[in-house]
Nucleic acid binder design. Structure first.
Length: 160
DNA sequence: GCCAACGTTGGC
DNA sequence: GCCAACGTTGGC
């Protein structure tokens, strides 16, 4: 069981959009960075915890909790020449990009980026590192548990 | 809109 | 393999 932070632009897919999606699940398509892809293909397992982070918006920060809901599988958007995620160097014979599905768990209060930076417990969080641009970053168990205590009024173990 | 930081590309 | 140029991310 691992933990992750996944960035999403709320005008593309907000925590509310995730909650409203069919089966409260969305395919995490469009990742075009090898490190982020490798997290999905090599390290993620179904059931892993996800901090759902709103990025590139007026109030960036953690907006909810989710869960990895599938193994990694081929990202079809790379094959669509008209789409924004088209990769002309990829082919069906040798697909470059894969993704997992992510399922809604619950909405939380917004833990804004500036607030996150104030917590000593999160000082080493990958997403807070200088110059970080990765859309998927690993979260340490201690960071996860600390954040769940901050975001929920329940014991983290109650959230399944 | 600005710009720092970083990843990718491609010539050599 | 090096590295300059370029494109993208994402907070502000």
């Amino acid at each position: 069981m691992r933990y992750w932070l996944m960035k999403s632009e709320p005008n593309e897919c907000s925590i509310d959009d995730l909650a409203a999606a069919p089966d409260q699940t969305v395919p995490w398509t469009g990742v075009r960075n090898y490190q982020a892809r490798n997290f999905m293909t090599r390290d993620m397992q179904i059931g892993d915890g996800v901090l759902f982070y709103h990025s590139s918006c007026p109030d960036p920060g953690i907006a909810g909790l989710a869960r990895v809901a599938s193994e990694a599988y081929v990202d079809e958007t790379q094959f669509d020449p008209a789409g924004p995620y088209h990769d002309p160097k990829s082919s069906r014979e040798k697909p470059r990009w894969q993704h997992v599905d992510v399922r809604f768990v619950k909405k939380t209060r917004l833990a804004g980026l500036s607030e996150l930076r104030t917590h000593a417990e999160l000082a080493n969080m990958r997403v807070l590192a200088r110059g970080n641009r990765l859309s998927i970053t690993p979260v340490e168990p201690a960071e996860w548990h600390f954040l769940l205590r901050e975001l929920l009024d329940t014991d983290p173990d109650d959230v399944q």
